[in-house]
Simulated assay, not measured.
Amino acid sequence: MARVALVTGGSRAIGAAISKALKENGFTVAASYAGNDEAAQRFKSETGIPVFKWDVGDYDACSAGVKQVESEAGPVDVLVNNAGITRDGFFHKMSREQWSAVMRTNLDSLFNMTRPVIEGMRTRGWGRVIVISSINGQKGQAGQVNYSAAKAGDIGFVKALAQENASKGITVNAICPGYIGTEMVQAIDPEILKSKIIPQIPVGRLGQPEEIARAVVFLAGEDGGFITGSTLAINGGQYMT
């Protein structure tokens, strides 16, 4: 029987690439999303992957959403915590709402989504938890104190949870993408991309969502079973650890 993978923020950008790659590699995939109904339905019709709508910052909504997925597809074997938002601004001008919104979606969501699936994984003796963090959680970024703090917290979450669950056949890992050619990045002024951003990337180009997805597929499968508590940087050499 195919393993069940749940991808948060799984109907757009990097999340969509992850969902499609997992399906292509034999997983039964469910994708959650937060608000863009049109994009989610288009993704569903194009891929055949079912979509489920809830707010990953709301624990009760996550718990109910996981139950719905499991009732339709089966127990979640692979959880990809991909959902994330930005609310950028310099810290001395940042509102409490800008801070809280990013923390809820980018950090609190790890508890909200992982807590409802971890006991089942432990009971079955197999599981994969993969967190999409960010290069800015590793190096920081001016104008993103909230985002950088949340994404750094993601890495700490991975390291601790990996230690707690390694003996139960569960791996927990983080992927830290750099600049990836999503709609959001492609919307940046082309001159800024050319003169300011790409020169920071030694390989000389933006990454592609599919490059992140291929790493997720590897970590989600049997071949990734000896990798846990790791942080995989996929950034074209922009930041080396």
Rank of each mutant, 00 (worst) to 15 (best):
I197A: 08
I192D: 09
T171Q: 08
V158K: 07
A166D: 11
Q141C: 01
S167W: 12
M184N: 05
R115H: 15
K196M: 15
V158R: 07
V172A: 07
V158T: 12
T123Y: 07
N173L: 04
Q144P: 08
S109P: 09
R115I: 13
K151H: 01
E119H: 03
E191D: 11
S134A: 12
N165R: 00
V203Y: 00
Q144W: 04
F111P: 01
L206H: 10
M113T: 14
I155Y: 12
G204A: 03
V145K: 06
R104S: 13
P190K: 08
R96M: 12
G127M: 11
I188S: 00
V172M: 05
P199A: 00
T105E: 03
G181N: 07
S95T: 15
K159R: 15
S167P: 07
C176P: 01
K159I: 06
C176G: 10
T105K: 03
E119T: 04
M94V: 08
E211G: 12
G120F: 00
D108W: 06
V131E: 05
T114E: 11
P199L: 01
R205W: 01
W126L: 05
Q186K: 14
K151P: 05
G127Q: 11
S148M: 10
N136Q: 13
G140I: 02
Q200W: 06
F157I: 13
I135Y: 09
S100T: 13
P202K: 02
V102H: 02
S134E: 06
K159E: 15
G143R: 03
I170R: 04
R122A: 14
E210D: 11
K168L: 12
I188R: 01
A160S: 15
Q208Y: 11
L193P: 01
P190I: 04
Q141G: 00
T171V: 08
G143T: 04
G169P: 10
N112T: 10
T105Y: 05
M121L: 10
I132T: 12
S148P: 10
V145M: 13
W126A: 01
K196R: 15
V185P: 06
N173Y: 06
P209V: 00
D189E: 13
S109I: 08
T114M: 10
R104N: 13
A142K: 09
A162W: 09
Q141D: 09
G140E: 08
A101S: 15
D108K: 00
W99Q: 02
A142Y: 06
K93F: 14
V117W: 00
V172K: 02
A187Q: 13
R128K: 15
V102P: 02
E211Q: 10
M94I: 07
P202E: 09
E164A: 15
T182S: 06
I188A: 00
D154Q: 15
K168W: 11
R115T: 13
L206V: 12
Q138N: 11
Q208V: 06
S195P: 02
A152E: 03
Y147E: 05
P116C: 07
V102T: 13
D108R: 00
K168S: 14
